[in-house]
Design a protein around this nucleic acid. Sequence first.
DNA 1: TTGTATGCGTTATCAC
DNA 2: GTGATAACGCATACAA
Lengths: 340, 340
Amino acid sequence: MNSGARPTVRMEEVARHAGVSPATVSRVLNDRGKCSAKTRERVLAAIRDLGYVANAAARSLAQGRTGSLGFLLPTIGTEFMSSFLQVVASAATEEGYDLLIALRSESSLRRMLGRHNTDGVLIFGSAMGEASLRRLAAEGFPALLVYRTPPPGLSLPSIAIDNEAGVRESVEHLIQAHGRRRVAFLQGPAGNEDAGRREEAYRATLARHGLPVDPRLCRSGLSAEEARASTMAWLREQAPFDAVVGWCDAAAIGAMDALRSEGRSVPADVSVVGFDDIGPARHLDPALTTVRPPTELVARLAVRELVRLIQSGQRGAGEPQPRLGLAVELVLRRSCGCSR
Amino acid sequence: MNSGARPTVRMEEVARHAGVSPATVSRVLNDRGKCSAKTRERVLAAIRDLGYVANAAARSLAQGRTGSLGFLLPTIGTEFMSSFLQVVASAATEEGYDLLIALRSESSLRRMLGRHNTDGVLIFGSAMGEASLRRLAAEGFPALLVYRTPPPGLSLPSIAIDNEAGVRESVEHLIQAHGRRRVAFLQGPAGNEDAGRREEAYRATLARHGLPVDPRLCRSGLSAEEARASTMAWLREQAPFDAVVGWCDAAAIGAMDALRSEGRSVPADVSVVGFDDIGPARHLDPALTTVRPPTELVARLAVRELVRLIQSGQRGAGEPQPRLGLAVELVLRRSCGCSR
DNA sequence: TTGTATGCGTTATCAC
DNA sequence: GTGATAACGCATACAA
C-alpha cells in the first residue's frame, strides 16, 4: 500500500495543514454537506500540497461499498473478448467504478465476492458453472449474466443476443440467395450457450427448408486450428458440402484456410459464413460474411444495468429480472458468394 | 458490498458458531500462529456452514496491503493487447493477486494509487505521460514499465523488447534475401516508444546498406485503415517501392489489403512484413512475415518482478533497476517472398 | 458551517 | 494454544 520513503499522508494531516477537522476534509472530498468556499479552498490546497490520496480500504470499510465491479470471463485472448472488454472497461470508468477482472476459476470468484469484495459482478458466458450461479443467486449478490441466459429456474438478470435469428438469417441466405444445399457446421465448446443455440438454429433452419442434416457435416470448430482440421477431414472423406457455417469467425477463418490450401475456391466452390464480425473478418480474402452482434451495446447495457442493480439496493427476488435478447445483423461480404 | 437479503456474516459470528474467539478465526484463516487441529476443524466447519467470506476492505485496512495489482494500459481492443492481458491476468492470479485494469487516463491512475489502492502498478507503453511517471517515481510507489524504457534521468524498472534487432533483421532480410531496394515504412503513434525505435531501426538499417531513405515512403500506419490509405497514396502517387514494413501487424495487414485491391501481388510485386505476430498473421493470404516478441515471457516477468518489488518492501532508489530488453524472433512466412 | 465521537470488520500485540 | 484489546483510516450521526 505504501512502500514509499515518506510515510503515508492521512486525512488527519491534511486537516491540520488546512486548520480544520478531519470531518471537514472528508466532506470536501465527498461533496457532502455544505461548507464555505473559503475552507473548501484551503482543504483542496492542503490536499494538493501534501499529495494526499484517500485510503481505499478505509473508505470502503466506512462506506460499506468498494466502488469496483468484477468481470468474470472465461478467457481474454480472443479478438472478440478484447473488444468487448474494452467497452466494459470504459463504461465502468464512466460510471465511476473500477474494474476487477478474473479469468474463469472458482477461486477467482470467491475472491471477487470475498477477498476483494466487489460491489457486483458481470459474468460472461460460460465463465461460471451452474452450481456457482445458484449459490450466487441465493446470496442475492448483485450479478448479471452476459452473453448467456440464466439456467432454468434461476432468476438472474441477463443480457444476451439473438443467436437464433443470426444463424437463421445466415443459413437462409446461403440457401435462398446462393442455392446452397449441403451446409456444414463448425461447432463451438460444449458448455457454451451461444454455441449451442447457434447449432440448434442451424439444424432447425435446414429442417425448415427441407434439407437433410448430415451428422458427418457437424465437426469441431473450437479454434481456427480445429476448424481447419475438421474442414480437411470433410475434404479427405469427400463429404459432400457446398457451404460452411462457423459457430464463430475464428472457426470460419480456419475453414477458409483449409479450403484455400486444398485448392478449393471460396465462395465459388464453397460458401463460408461466420459469427461475431471480429476485426480481421473484413480484411480476409475473400472478406468474411458474418453475423454482427451489437457488442458495444451489450457491454454498455450490462455495465449500466449492473450499476443500477447495485445502487437500487437489495434485489427484490420477486420483481421480474430483465432478460434481453438483442438483435443481431447479417453482414454480407464476399465469402458467401455475394459480390460485395 | 452486501445487498443480499440476509445480513453480512462477520468473523464474530463464525467465532460464536465455533465456540472460539474472533482472533482464533483470523489465525485459522491466515495460517498464522499455531492452533490445535481440533479447533481448526471447528472453525473451518463454521465458515463453511455460514458461508463466511472475509471483508476485503477490513482486511486491507488492518494489513496495510490490498492484494491487488494495477495494470494501466492505453487500449485493450487490439489482438496484441488481448493476448498480453491474458497472460498478465493469469500470472497475477498465480502470484495470489487480483488484477485491476484501467485504461489510459490520469483519473484512473490516481484511483489506482489512491482510491482503490493497489499494491503496485504495471504501466504499459504509452499509457502514462512522462510527468506522471516522474511523480510516481518520486513517491516510490512500486511500479514497473512494460514495453517501454524509462525516460532519461528516471530510475524505474522496466521490461522492454529489442525493437531494433527485430526491425533490423526483417529489413535486412528484405534486402539480402529478396533483393528489395525501395522499402517503405508505416509509422506508429507519435508518443509510442516501440514505434519510434522501430522507425529509427528502419532508417538506420537502410542507411547501413547504402539505401536511400525516401521521406515520401514513410506514412501513417496508426491503424489498418490508415495503413491502407497510406499504401493507396503511394500507389496513386506512383512512389517507387518494392517492400512495406509495418510498425505493427495491423499496419502490414492494411497495406496488403490496399495492394490486393489495386491488383498488386504480395510478395511478387511488393514484399510486406509486420511486427508482433498477432493471431491472424499466419492465416492471411499470403501469410505474414513478421517479428515475434516474447509476449508471454514479458508478461510473466513483468508480474513476477512487480510482485518482487512489492514484497521486498521499500524500493531502494540507490540499487540499479532492472531494465531488460528481451530478444525477438523473425518469423519468415510468405508475404516477404519466402516460400514458406 | 464545523468539530467530536463512534463504528466499519479485520489483524496484530499482548497477556493468559 | 487461546482470548481480550488496540490499532488501521475514513465516514457520519450528533452536537455545537
